[in-house]
Design a protein around this nucleic acid. Structure first.
Lengths: 326, 326
DNA sequence: TCAAAAGTGTTATCCTTACACCCATGT
DNA sequence: ACATGGGTGTAAGGATAACACTTTTGA
């Protein structure tokens, strides 16, 4: 049996949902577009079902986003296909299966405006433990304590594996922090039950519902998981591809560029070295214009040198090594 | 409308196919497992439809692979979900839509054995232009000539974009070669019509069917595309995650490790520097045993230090910069 | 004059790359 | 002896990270 003759009869109804994490960066930091029509329920990512007339998956996604948010997306990339039969409760209640294909889309800063029934939210509202720009975030300590409790209540054969997973994802107070592990951290919190949707989904959780981290906002269905996937992907990609520029306006100052990278990576960068790194890689060119938008000495306005996409496709903006300490 | 209430009625039948690229590395180089029951048709990747009783997508995949090849997979990772409505002819002919979710699986060398109706094939049989271990591959010259022809027959407004794509993917005789762009190269060849399946699928091609590259083997449906995705992913990943070790036996010499990396990356590496790089990163530890398998001085046998997965999750084996020249 | 941001210089350190060379074994 | 692969030394060049410092504006 091959792909050319799939057996259709046996599989029952399959519903495919296309969902988008639409990212922008403003002065307030990294933002995602969410729909929030009903204030009594958590917000949701823009999404809609795959339909027969969609030529490609990506075309279907673009159609839905345009319909629901009147946005025309630029850069779009597929993230992951989620399909656990029993992940969220409403999916279990229905016959058949729900697949959910997540996409990442980047829009330029200037395109941000408020829209009916949709709004921009800082992505750290959903993942406050991911923002280290101002040192170790406060939520981290209680989270680590809960994780320590989860590890302690484990038979010793399994304890080592849990310890390893926890240390990899959340480090220890004197250890390292790896920004790219956003998804792994979320999955761990879900498994332990520190995230309210784990209880909503009826997963077997170690932690009681009251122990869930309430400083963070949740999302409908598996949308917070998709968002975590997007953050992980973007944080990884920024290091070896010049994707930040898909989030910047046509012209920008070095500090604006640095703030955008810091917003995504969730860490602070060294100003002088960041400048030289970007300059040295030939990623930008001076437009000759100046900006006095910020207080202080006017800054040169730069633009992205699109030529580097051909010259050196494998370079990004560069980030310092993993961060230490609390 | 949210993921919690997908509209099912409108979308017609959706068939989801789970396919696996199962990779091993032997002395002959990188190998993939293919099924080839009918000699009159191209081979296929092990695959099967998603069924209601599959708990997760990955579980479904593992079930199919075990059923068709009697393999138990170790490392498995989702690659991509393909779903063009009109990509291959047989999909078009049927009502509804075929989605195909590709997975990458790695197995240890020693597990290789010949099986009924399935066999290991070198992955460069399908992508001979990707193997630069012995200098620039011979197929490349005619391929580049065809691409040049395709560019030449283009109105000047569009030519620049084609030139950029071609140079990014295939470099130029004096330029760079980026091993990670296997998928981009395949997509370009498909679009131009230099690959027989483009004609089989009835795509609008610039090149005539006779111009297709016949030194390379094809696969059923979109399986060659999935394989290209797997190669791109693996070549990228090897640089920042110690995934090679999922392809190695328990104990191995440095040269064996180096040959495995070279096989995947498709380039030759500098022996002394490779050794020091791997040693310095603490990726391996000496077992104290020696191997006299190869001629010459017996080599120390090493094993993978699993601890590094926790210590420094972001390191890989390291590759030299993109390769120059013809 | 001072605060705030822009921008440059410099140095110590580490990593990468390339080249040269010696070591241990089988034939 | 010599071929084959194993393994070490080392030095040049480049990239990184940290520190100090000057410049230009607005308030």
């Amino acid at each position: 049996m091959t792909l050319d003759q799939p057996t259709r009869g046996r599989q029952g109804a399959i519903a495919v949902e296309l969902g988008a994490v639409i990212v922008a960066v403003t002065l307030e930091g990294p933002q995602v577009l969410v729909l929030h029509p009903d204030p009594r329920r958590p917000a949701a990512l823009p999404s809609g079902p795959l339909e027969p007339h969609h030529r490609t998956l990506e075309a279907g996604l673009r159609t839905w986003v345009t319909e629901k948010t009147s946005f025309d997306l630029g850069y779009v990339e597929q993230l992951y296909t989620f399909g656990d039969a029993n992940r969220h409760a409403s999916a279990r209640a229905q016959p058949g299966r729900a697949l959910s294909i997540g996409y990442l889309a980047l829009v330029h800063q200037r395109e941000i405006r408020q829209l009916d029934a949709s709004s921009w939210r800082g992505w750290y509202d959903f993942f406050p433990w991911e923002d280290w720009r101002d040192g170790a975030p406060g939520v981290l300590e209680p989270v680590r304590d809960s994780i320590a409790g989860w590890i302690a209540e484990t038979p010793s054969e399994e304890r080592k594996s849990r310890e390893e997973r926890a240390q990899l994802a959340f480090g220890d107070p004197n250890g390292h922090w790896n920004g790219e592990l956003t998804l792994e951290r979320y999955e761990l919190l879900y498994e332990i039950g520190l995230v309210p949707e784990a209880h909503r989904d009826g997963a077997a959780c170690w932690a009681p519902r009251e122990a869930a981290i309430m400083d963070a906002d949740s999302l409908q269905a598996d949308h917070r998981r998709i968002l975590a996937t997007a953050i992980s992907r973007l944080r990884g990609k920024i290091k070896y591809r010049p994707v930040v520029f898909d989030l910047m306006p046509e012209r920008f100052t070095f500090l604006e560029l640095q703030r955008a990278v810091e917003a995504l990576a969730g860490v602070e960068l060294h100003k002088a070295n960041f400048r030289r790194l970007v300059e040295h890689q030939g990623l930008v060119e001076d437009t000759g214009e100046k900006s006095s938008a910020a207080g202080g000495r006017p800054a040169s306005l730069f633009r992205f040198r699109r030529e580097v996409l051909v010259e050196r496709p494998a370079i990004g903006v560069g980030l310092p090594p993993v961060r230490r300490g609390t």
